[in-house]
Amino acid sequence: MSGARLEIEALGKRFRGLRAVHDVSFAVPAGAIHALIGPNGAGKTTIFNMIAGVFPPDAGAVRLDGRPISGLRPDLVCAAGVGRTFQIVKPFKGLSVLENVTVGALHRHADLETARERAGAILDALELGDRRHQLAEALTLPDRKRLEVARALATEPTLLLLDEVMAGLRPTEVDRMVTFLRDLNARTGITVLLIEHVMRAVMALAAHVVVVSSGEKIAEGTPAEIARHQAVLDVYLGDAAGDAA
């Protein structure tokens, strides 16, 4: 497993006249971990959904290792190497934790036994191994977040899209997830793009941060640069903060 390069070019999307995303471009080099941040309603999840094929963009293109993937169905985007989690977790509630992840593993391994073994190994790595026979609906929210990551990883992606997997986790759990993702990235070279509000995680993981607000990219740079960036301070703290500063 290795990472793929993601390129987003002049992406645009309107919902009934509402401009959700406008002219957003950025790239994530192969093997890098980047973060996509911005206030609620900025269009982050819409960008994710266009990458993952939930709906096609109205304008622009998404490329994975140079290959255009925008407009493909979600299952074909997955086949192309994109794994994603959902902000509002979507476990297969009536299936066991192991079977949830097995469904993902079946994507690359048609044999059920092999897929189960792969799924078991991923669950162990995410510290869900001892819950494998529980129904997914019985999991707590932090465990459901981990299950989302496990199921996405089971499809053996080259690009992992994480939509707020730290939200609702306690600080120690955030640290464990950060450690897991950093190890995973170091070990496999997988490319990661994460939407995150938990700045502790963004600062610890991302080499590069893209900031969107009202559907447009307003800044990008290293976490340190972003923390000092005037436009970012404005959207997060309001213009008053900028005036005062």
């Binding site: 299952d75 959902f86 297969f92 009536g94 097995t102 469904v103 993902g104 994507h107």
Partner: peptide, 17 residues
Amino acid sequence: RYWLAIREDAEAAQAVG
């Protein structure tokens, strides 16, 4: 297994291929 996944959540199923 794919059927069961679709039964539980079609959108999540499609996202894992």
